[in-house]
């Protein structure tokens, strides 16, 4: 399964929210949709789910224009909320039925997920009697109960305690293993890094960076060294402006070109007392800050 957005344009009044966004997410893999607040993530998701049409561009599923009667979506919105005054089982079955399930299979599926998430004891309780984290688990069921092709999770880990976060991670892995397309939108980069094979960073309604996360990291200029040494001051003095303070007392040394790497490392190892020395690989957080903070 492949879900694609091609050159999607969307404006609200005079405001251009999306200006030619193209994305590609594959089944059995997780895709991370990143961007600062207001970058156009939610609008992209809503267009993907056909909440409103785009002004231009197309959404494709397996290469053909998507048929929303056939492709099912599961969505955990960032703004959580269901019917606070209704019984949990009633509303979960209702949502599953709205997605096309018949009553019996809806009940069966909801019961499976309640059990899977350890929520069976709350089955007949009202939603507003639950804690926030538990309400979020209930809401996750609305995204999964109808066994959708595409699962879109917007900030799925916010508000969960570490045990529940672990449980959710297991569930997400299961869903990916089943070959579903999983689309993450989150500001918690560690989770994106843990799950997502490919990412797209939106900035000002445009894709600032997209592709395979490993490749992105590998293709990052390998012209910086991270050095931990007892003689940091001496090294800093020697290299002057090329040397910056990193975190935890590390030094970050920018080379004139990646080709110098070998020789400089040799020089450092021979001259100073070095504890650790490696080529700098950016974290997703670094990449995000770099691409998302520029004004487009």
């Amino acid at each position: 399964m492949v879900l694609e957005m091609r050159n999607i344009q969307k404006s609200f009044g005079e405001k251009k929210v999306l200006q030619g966004v193209s994305l590609r997410a594959e089944g059995g893999k997780a895709f991370g949709l990143l961007g600062r607040n207001g970058a156009g993530k939610t609008t992209s998701i809503r267009i993907l789910m056909h909440v409103f049409p785009a002004n231009g561009g197309e959404v494709l599923f397996d290469g053909a224009p998507i048929d929303y009667n056939k492709v099912q979506f599961g969505y955990l919105p960032e703004e959580r909320g269901l019917y606070p005054k209704k019984k949990i089982i009633d509303q979960l079955v209702y949502f599953a039925e709205l997605k096309g399930m018949d009553y019996k299979s809806a009940v069966r599926s909801v019961d499976y997920w309640l059990n899977r998430l350890g929520m069976t004891e709350y089955r007949n309780k009202r939603l507003d009697t639950l804690s926030k984290g538990n309400q979020q688990k209930i809401q996750l069921i609305t995204a999964l109960a109808h066994d959708p092709h595409v699962v879109i999770l917007d900030e799925p880990f916010s508000g969960l305690d570490p045990v529940n976060a672990m449980l959710l991670k297991d569930v997400v892995r299961e869903v990916i293993a089943k070959g579903k397309i999983v689309l993450f939108s989150s500001h918690q980069m560690n989770y994106i890094e843990e799950f997502c094979d490919s990412i797209a960073i939106l900035n000002g309604g445009k894709v600032a960076l997209s592709g395979d996360l490993h490749e992105i990291k590998r293709n990052y200029p390998r012209n910086r060294l991270v050095i931990r040494s007892t003689q940091s001051d001496a090294i800093a003095t020697r290299f002057g402006e090329a040397c910056q303070q990193g975190k935890d007392g590390e030094l970050l040394l920018t080379l004139a070109s990646p080709d110098e790497k070998q020789s400089i490392m040799k020089l450092l190892a021979e001259t100073y007392d070095i504890d650790e020395m490696k080529v700098f690989e950016p974290s997703l957080n670094d990449i995000f800050v770099e691409y998302a903070e520029k004004e487009v």
Binding site: V51, P77, G81, L82
Partner: peptide, 15 residues
């Protein structure tokens, strides 16, 4: 009410 409880976010993508 559906809107203020944000149940709408799911509803509008379901129906």
């Amino acid at each position: 009410t559906e809107k203020s409880s944000r149940a709408m976010e799911v509803l509008v993508t379901s129906a």
